[in-house]
Amino acid sequence: MRSGFFFFAGAALMLLGGWVGLPKALYKQQAQPLDFTHKAHVVKAEMDCTSCHDFRQDGSFAGIPRIDNCAACHAEPVGTTANEKKLVEKYVTPEKEIGWLVYSRQPINTRFSHAIHVRKAELKCERCHGEHGKTETLRPFEYNVVSGYSRDIWGRSISRLRRASHEGMKMDDCMDCHKEKGAEAGCLGCHR
């Protein structure tokens, strides 16, 4: 009886340890090169997502804006923050790209067309990226040490049981939405 108790207690302890410790061991954090505030741009400067994240002429999604995009407004500091100063001095003036770490970067074999999802299916950015446009600071980039993928792919919830609708960018998450919308694509619709 006693040995049984110890067995289960030990097992429970180890499970708990794994539950708490595994995400810590599995994911590593990396700071963004520059702190960026979406909120200031969206609310104060009254910009919208497509002001910076827009399509190219050929229909491909430009994704993260290049430095000349920033330079358009920040050739000289418009405010007084240290971050902006860093931006101008370190990146804009020497025309150096900022090595942003992209939270939603998919594995190389995945093809995602923003054009189809945003223009044709008229999905809001928030559907997949959440309220990223309202954040004041950039959270640290976390990546899986085994696969190298961003933590956002799996989602922050390890069990994936209780997660926000935008959380998780696994194939299953894509498939769920596709099934819901009746837009089932073949494998090579989203793989390349």
Binding site: D58, S60, S113, R119, K120, R192
Partner: peptide, 14 residues
């Protein structure tokens, strides 16, 4: 298929 994807993108934008 890569070219097909690009054509798809183009069509969607247009």
């Amino acid at each position: 298929h890569g070219r097909f994807h690009e054509a798809q993108d183009r069509a969607a934008l247009e």
